[in-house]
Each structure stands twice: as structure tokens, then as C-alpha cells.
């Protein structure tokens, strides 16, 4: 049972309050009909599936109800940070350097 920081509630809370919601920063195209079959396929099905740092979405479904973004290491399951939906993708390396 992981502990997850909700950036809206500003509290670190147990995993049962949350649900996972897939990779982050996959925006729905503004005009899907303008996309080629290949572009639409990539949007629908192709994900990064990295070993290591993963930008992903969670929802505090049994809390404030908000979707938000998180950076989690898929090897250690450790969260680097969480941030609100709509905020730009943080540069993790820059954050790490700043912390050091």
C-alpha cells in the first residue's frame, strides 16, 4: 500500500483513496478527425512504458476527486513528486540538481 501525495489536498494519504489513470501528458487532439490513421493509433495505443521514471496520472477518487499527475519510478515504486493536472511536465533532472 503506497502513500501518495495529493497536490490538491496537500496531504500524503494511503493508496486505497486513489486510482491509477494511465500515462500522463497524453492530450486528446483538438481535432481528432484531422489526424491520420497512424497519428490516431499512436494517440490511442502507444505508450512509453519505461523502466524507471514514469509520468503518470492518478485520481484521488475517494478524496477530493481530482485527477493529478505523478512521477513514479517503475522499478522502485517510489514517487518523485506529484503535481496538478494541467501543469507542465516537470524536468526531473533539473529538480534533482536543485535539490542537491
Amino acid at each position: 500500500m503506497l502513500l501518495i501525495h495529493c497536490p490538491y489536498c496537500d496531504e500524503t494519504l494511503p493508496e486505497p483513496e486513489f486510482t491509477y489513470a494511465g500515462e500522463a501528458h497524453v492530450a486528446r487532439p483538438a481535432d481528432p478527425m484531422a489526424l491520420s490513421d497512424e497519428e490516431w493509433r499512436d494517440f490511442l495505443f502507444v505508450r512509453s512504458n519505461p523502466r524507471g521514471t514514469h509520468y503518470e496520472r492518478w485520481r484521488h477518487i475517494n478524496g477530493c476527486g481530482r485527477f493529478f499527475n505523478a512521477i513514479r519510478d517503475t522499478v522502485t515504486d517510489k514517487f518523485a513528486m506529484t503535481y496538478r493536472a494541467g501543469e507542465p511536465r516537470p524536468n526531473l533532472d533539473a529538480l534533482k540538481e536543485a535539490a542537491e
Partner: peptide, 13 residues
């Protein structure tokens, strides 16, 4: 409801 909230919150806020 979850699917609707997802679109509403993240695609069409």
C-alpha cells in the same frame, strides 16, 4: 462517472 470526470477535468476544464 469516472470516465466523464476524466474528460471534464483534464480535457475540457
Amino acid at each position: 462517472l469516472n470516465m466523464m470526470e476524466d474528460y471534464l477535468q483534464t480535457e475540457w476544464p
